[in-house]
């Protein structure tokens, strides 16, 4: 596999759809773009039906632009809003049944290690708060207990967005939602601490207010999973529909939440810390040689 599947067969260049030709010529395969270069290359994701101004859609856009190795990545999603975009990218996508994502990812990662022993295949789950912390809770936790080497990204919009506004374990205390009018009676689950206790080697909590930091966090979570064990990102990705946020205020809302309960938080094991220090020293040395 690798880069082969994004080459156009000789003689077919003139007949392929323009978006595909652009992807091969100006896309991310085989190159590494900085997130600051967004808007100057052809992105992996195509048009998708997520709502206007959806910050989960924004997060997923940055996620694809940050993949360290898109040609060797497989994304797993499930029922929920995220899959509406995850399924429109030039990266293999597997739809796990609702709640099953982390069990599917465990099997897939193990199979890939057997089938491609000399390659790094990145497996990344991207799913909602309902999918990972409510209905998929058991499978999420057990994949961490077993130290499965893949990344889990929870796109937390604090509601069941795709089914019209039921409360989730990640909805904040007191919040009233369209299909939960009595108000949430208990606190938001502390997902990041659970991930740490369950054996993740890298965890982060982030609001998408700073593209550079977001890209770095996503890359780190994927690289740490490649070599050491399960990794987890808890991302605030607001649902402007269910929380009635005017679309032009979606970034302002994320900035406010970051100041209050979504401050950037990053934790990693000593082993992972040592690994990133080494990688960063090597990068600096390479730049100095240039």
């Amino acid at each position: 596999m690798g880069l082969e599947y994004v080459r156009i067969t000789t003689g077919f260049e003139d007949y392929m759809p323009k978006d595909y030709v652009d992807l091969v010529k100006y896309g991310q395969f085989g190159k590494e773009y900085d997130i600051q270069d967004l808007g100057t290359f052809k992105e992996l994701v195509e048009e998708h039906p997520m709502c206007a101004g959806c910050f989960m859609a924004y997060f997923i856009r940055v996620f694809y632009a940050s993949l360290p190795n898109p040609e060797d990545s497989i994304v797993i999603g499930t029922a929920g809003c995220a899959r509406l975009q995850l399924s429109q990218a030039a990266v293999p996508f597997i739809y796990g049944n609702y709640g099953d994502t982390n069990a599917v990812a465990s099997g897939l990662k193990r199979a890939l290690e057997i089938r491609f022993p000399d390659k790094n295949k990145d497996v990344i789950v991207v799913a909602g708060d309902g999918g990972l912390m409510d209905i998929g809770f058991g499978m999420t936790m057990h994949s961490w207990f077993r130290r499965e080497r893949f990344t889990t990204i929870m796109v937390d919009n604090e509601v069941y967005g795709n089914t019209g506004g039921q409360e989730s374990g990640m909805s904040p205390k007191g919040v009233q939602l369209k299909m939960a009018p009595k108000g949430k009676k208990f606190d938001k689950i502390n997902a990041v601490e659970l991930a740490k206790a369950a054996g993740c080697v890298y965890v982060a909590r982030i609001a998408p207010t700073n593209p550079k930091r977001l890209a770095k966090t996503i890359k780190r979570a994927i690289l740490a999973a490649r070599h050491f064990g399960p990794t987890f990102i808890h991302a605030y990705t607001s649902c402007n529909i269910e929380y009635s946020i005017p679309t032009e205020k979606v970034l302002e809302d994320a900035r406010n939440r970051e100041k209050n309960d979504f401050a950037f938080y990053e934790w990693m094991s000593d082993e992972v810390k040592g690994f990133f220090e080494q990688v960063e020293t090597k990068k600096k040395e390479a730049q100095e040689v240039k």
Binding site: I35, Q36, L38, G39, T40, K42, E43, L44, V45, E46, E47, M50, A52, G53, C54, F55, A57, Y58, R61, Y64, P211, L251
Partner: peptide, 22 residues
């Protein structure tokens, strides 16, 4: 190119480097 970095849609708000505009 700040606005380009925050558009939720892929391949939509673009940046022309040669002329420095979005």
């Amino acid at each position: 190119n700040q606005c380009v970095l925050f558009c939720p849609e892929p391949n939509t708000l673009m940046f022309l480097q040669a002329k420095n505009f979005a």
